[in-house]
């Protein structure tokens, strides 16, 4: 969705191509309309509906209007706002489980070292099991290029102005990736400690990465993300001697939000703590593969 003008799904791109329209084909999008003759700062590939201020009773979703019946009535809905995303996430999760795929959703603020961590992880696990990566960024496919150079197939999702990946985008990306049975899928979310917390992608775990060059109180400032995660990687620990960062306090704060949070201290560049992280990943992959073998399908 284009959050500049509020129209359509606008700028989301998967490997440079527009995201497939999740709505019914031929259906007019109903969002804010650009002013006549307005100069658009970004390209639009979809149609806009025409807003003329008139109430068109025949243009409603039901496509009809019974004359004389205009009495208001109440409709009970009781539906979770994220239900649609959760439905897509459930489909993804089902696919992962049937095919023994261990999927991780990596979340953090920008610059915490997610991509370096992925590159090192791929290098360490290369040959041990098939790894595929989905990269989420607002713009560029730099990260996907880094991952491909490290030896794993990667697909870039550009969210345009969007601030998070959602389950539908991941589902679309999955169809374009060579996903093998009993493999590891690493999803690097958009660098953002707020929005990705709410959107289930169907992953087995959210892994939050906090680097020691940030503040210790980030877990308190952005509690939703630390609550949604199952594992926290405290990254760039090789820099601790040069910083006034209290690692113990950061872990304390994170566990105030989420007492069950597992924490591993690592440095993706020096290799410190990487064995524990790789063991955790390998165990998850084994369990996912085992569950697939045990399932009747």
């Amino acid at each position: 969705m284009c959050t500049t003008c509020g129209c359509g799904i606008g700028q989301t791109l998967i490997a440079g191509h527009a995201l497939k329209q999740p709505r019914k084909p031929g259906k007019v999008m109903r969002y804010r309309v650009h002013e006549e003759g307005a100069v658009l700062a970004h390209p639009h590939t979809h149609q806009h509906g025409v807003l003329n201020g008139a109430l068109d009773f025949g243009a409603g979703a039901a496509g009809t209007h019974a004359p004389g019946i205009s009495q208001s009535r109440m409709v009970k809905i009781e539906r979770d706002i994220l239900a649609k995303n959760n439905d897509y996430a459930a489909e993804n999760r089902d696919y992962f489980s049937t095919h023994g795929i261990f999927a991780l959703n990596l979340v953090s603020s920008p610059g915490s070292g997610k991509t370096t961590l992925l590159v090192k992880t791929i290098a360490a696990l290369h040959g041990a099991l098939p790894i595929v990566v989905i990269e989420g960024d607002q713009q560029t496919d730099n990260d996907a290029a880094r991952i491909r150079a490290a030896g794993a197939p990667a697909l870039q999702i550009n969210t345009g102005k969007g601030c998070h990946l959602d389950a539908y985008m991941v589902g679309q990306a999955m169809q374009q990736l060579p996903l093998q049975d009993k493999s590891l899928l690493l999803i690097e979310n958009v660098g953002n400690l707020v929005c990705p917390a709410s959107f289930d992608l169907g992953e087995a775990h959210k892994v939050v990465i906090l680097s020691v060059t940030e503040g210790e109180d980030k877990p308190l400032k952005y509690p939703d993300m630390f609550r949604a995660a199952d594992l926290m990687l405290l990254n760039k620990c090789d820099l601790l001697p040069y910083l006034e960062f209290d690692a113990g306090l950061a872990v304390d704060y994170a566990r105030r939000i989420n007492p069950a949070l597992k924490v591993i201290r690592i440095s993706a560049s020096s290799g410190e703590g990487m064995t524990e992280w790789l063991d955790w990943v390998a165990l998850g992959c084994r369990n996912a593969a085992l569950r697939r073998t045990e399932s009747p399908a």
Partner: peptide
């Protein structure tokens, strides 16, 4: 700004129910 996505989901629910 994921509120935009949430508003979009609300509209989807409204249209599906319609």
């Amino acid at each position: 700004m994921h509120e935009m996505s949430l508003a979009e989901s609300v509209l989807q629910i409204i249209e599906d129910t319609a």
